[in-house]
């Protein structure tokens, strides 16, 4: 099941790559680097989330920082 989802994710990433890569100008070196970095970040995160869906997320981090204020509103 998980292997299938990972495969699907990789297909999606490949589609994004195939759609966008020919459209980036050859002179835009920096854009290409950023494109690859962002896409690989996304892929790594996706695989991490598929393998471990309970990974602590950004919301938990924010909740931890703002807890003293947030408690004011809890009932």
């Amino acid at each position: 099941m998980k292997a299938g989802v990972i495969l699907g994710t990789l297909v999606l990433v490949a589609l994004i790559f195939l759609y966008e890569w020919p459209r980036i100008n050859r002179t835009q070196k920096k854009e290409k680097v950023v494109f690859i970095v962002l896409l690989s970040l996304g892929t790594i995160l996706a695989i991490m989330l598929i393998l471990n869906p309970d990974l602590p997320g950004p919301t938990q981090m924010i909740e931890y920082i703002y807890k003293p204020l947030g408690r004011m509103l809890e009932k």
Partner: peptide, 16 residues
Amino acid sequence: LNLSDYRPITFPIGFL
């Protein structure tokens, strides 16, 4: 990131 165009990063950011 001081890029010259924002279009190329639209889909990667959408994925994120």
